[in-house]
Amino acid sequence: MIILGPNRYGKAETRVVRVTRHGDAHHIKDVNVSTSLSGDMAEVHLSGDNSAVLATDTQKNTVHAFAKKHGVGAIEDFALLLARHFVDSQPTVHHARVAIEEYSWERNGDSGHSFVRSGRETRTCVAHYDGSQAWVVSGLTGLVVLNTTNSEFWGYIKDEYTTLPETRDRILATAVDAAWRHAAPDGDAFDKSYENARQALLAAFGGTYSLSLQQTLYAMGSRVLNDCPEICEVRLSLPNRHHFLVDLSPFGLDNEDEVYFAADRPYGLIEGAVLRDDAPAAGPAWE
């Protein structure tokens, strides 16, 4: 017997740049929105009956229209607004997932209308809504950080294939991908929460004397939970951006922790979750 399994459909990567003009002072929100819907959709797969389908082009148009009608504030609020609209306005749509990436811009000098693309990380969020309950995961990707000392790595398993020497002092660098789940998303001030979580990640990375990147991951997740009571779970993905001391002895030169080779691959990848022991059930939040 063959049956239809879980399914969803939507419009991926609708790019929106929303300009808000307050006299000579302009403001930019630059986002990439992906919508995905599911519900009473069996017949479109089984017989080609499209009567339950809200076209993906309509989803794209809704994103643009809502950017005009409602503006784009915190991306979590915009994602929830869209998700609730799709579910509450269409009887065949039972669940909406809206994912948004935000790209930051900075003012170019003193001009109110000139901008330069920021080198900051990309802010992210995913919002789910099923008609009665909402889930929101905020986060960031590509937050590049580096400590030039206060990192060691030793005491690990040695077997016949081990060549890595132990070290009591090394460069520790990574590009942080982090996501955090809100316990009660309807009550959060998302912009403030984002800045607090970001600062907690940076403070923990810079302030932890690291014996392993795993230890640093736990310290970073714990700092977010300690500093942000509205967050109940943090998930981190930390690629180890290896820096190897260059052997300059063939050239008659000493190299006392000054010149390194930065290797982009292969790289260690450390991943993990840190959560409160009383965290509410995740539902579909991480999907």
Score class of each variant (00 low, 15 high):
Ser47Ala: 13
Thr56Arg: 04
Gly139Met: 01
Ala74Gly: 13
Tyr9Gly: 06
Ala173Arg: 15
His95Thr: 11
Ala282Ser: 14
Gln199Phe: 13
Ile270Asp: 15
His45Ala: 08
Val246Asn: 05
Tyr194Gln: 08
Gly119Val: 03
Arg223Ala: 13
Ile2Ala: 07
Val72Leu: 10
Gly207Val: 05
Asp159His: 09
Lys29Cys: 10
Phe244Ile: 03
Asp186Cys: 00
Asp130Ser: 07
Leu37Val: 02
Tyr9Arg: 02
Asp247Trp: 10
His45Lys: 02
Val63Arg: 04
Ser151Ala: 15
Ala184Lys: 09
Ser34His: 05
His128Ile: 00
Ala184Pro: 00
His113Gly: 02
Gly187Met: 02
Asp77Asn: 13
Glu106His: 03
Thr56Gly: 06
Leu172Ala: 09
Gly283Val: 03
His64Phe: 09
Ala67Gln: 03
Arg276Asn: 02
His94Val: 00
Gln215Gly: 13
Tyr9Leu: 00
Asp227Met: 13
Asn196Asp: 03
Gln133Val: 12
Asp227Arg: 15
Pro165Phe: 04
Gly142Phe: 13
His242Lys: 04
Arg84Gly: 00
Arg107Gln: 04
Gly252Thr: 00
Ala42Phe: 00
Gly283Trp: 08
Thr149His: 11
Ile2Gln: 08
Ala83Val: 00
Tyr156Thr: 01
Gly206Gln: 13
Pro266Arg: 09
Ser222Gln: 15
Arg117Asn: 11
Asp278Phe: 08
Phe244Ala: 09
Thr58Met: 04
Val33Tyr: 01
Met1Ser: 12
Gly109Asp: 11
Thr141Leu: 03
Ala262Ile: 13
Phe115Thr: 09
Pro229Arg: 12
Leu253His: 12
Leu248Gly: 06
Ser89Gln: 14
Arg241Gln: 10
Ala83Cys: 03
Asp169Arg: 14
Arg15Ser: 14
Asp110Gln: 14
Pro250Trp: 02
Ile2Pro: 01
Asn50Met: 13
Glu166Ser: 06
Ile231Ser: 07
Glu13Met: 05
Gly10Val: 01
Asp277Pro: 01
Ala281Ile: 01
Glu101Arg: 11
Asn108Phe: 13
Leu201Val: 03
Ala197Leu: 07
Ile28His: 07
Pro185Gly: 06
Val224Gly: 10
Thr216Ser: 13
Leu225Cys: 12
Val144Ala: 13
Asn196Glu: 07
Lys69Glu: 14
Gln215Thr: 14
Gly39Lys: 08
Tyr260Pro: 00
Gly119Asn: 12
Leu140Ala: 06
Tyr103Glu: 04
Gly252His: 08
Ala184Arg: 12
His64Arg: 11
Thr148His: 14
Asp227Val: 06
Ala96Val: 00
Ala219Tyr: 10
Asp186His: 14
His113Val: 11
Tyr103Asn: 11
Ser222Trp: 09
Asp191Tyr: 02
Glu195Lys: 05
Asp186Arg: 12
Thr208Ala: 06
Ile28Pro: 06
Val87Ile: 02
